[in-house]
């Protein structure tokens, strides 16, 4: 899978998309829309093994590795959470293990997500991010050529 934008470019484009809205209701509305476009996880992976702890809402995250890049699909039972999940996937899915491990996701602060989500939700977001990085580390440690 070849990505058109760098990690920096995709983050900057998200910041641009959110910058036109001052009102938080509008920001939620785009999150809701983004949630609808989330690459949906195969229902058979919506099981405990792929469930992320730390969210008041449930998030399932399924990784696939082709030896070069990690692709993520996911879902959540809450729509706003699904929007946030969609953003993380848009930024990190399809990137190399190295890129994911090293990724500095400054867009979260810049679009006001961290401040505007409650601490428990913020933890959920952070645990999802941590989980994505853990998968990348695990794949990197396994060496190349091994697919999930």
């Amino acid at each position: 899978m070849k990505l058109e934008m760098t990690l920096k470019e995709v983050q900057d484009s998200i910041i641009d998309e959110f910058s036109v809205f001052d009102d938080w209701m509008d920001k939620y509305n785009i999150l809701i829309e983004m949630g609808k476009e989330l690459p949906m996880i195969d229902p058979k992976f919506k099981v405990k093994d792929y469930l992320i702890e730390g969210c008041q809402s449930k998030v399932w995250l399924y990784p696939q590795y082709d030896g070069k890049a990690v692709t993520f699909t996911a879902d959540s039972d809450a729509i706003i959470t699904r929007g946030i999940v969609a953003l993380l996937i848009r930024v990190l899915s399809g990137r190399t293990t190295e890129e994911i491990i090293m990724a500095d996701l400054y867009f979260i602060d810049r679009i006001g997500l961290r401040q505007n989500l409650s601490p428990t939700r913020s933890n959920g977001l952070l645990s999802m991010l941590r989980q994505m990085k853990l998968y990348a580390m695990a794949y990197k440690a396994q060496g190349s050529g091994q697919s999930q």
Partner: peptide
Amino acid sequence: NIHQYDTGMILDKLGIAVRTG
């Protein structure tokens, strides 16, 4: 068909403090 957390998040933005979960 609306998750309690979604409801709570929007109510919060309207200044209404409820508990969800």
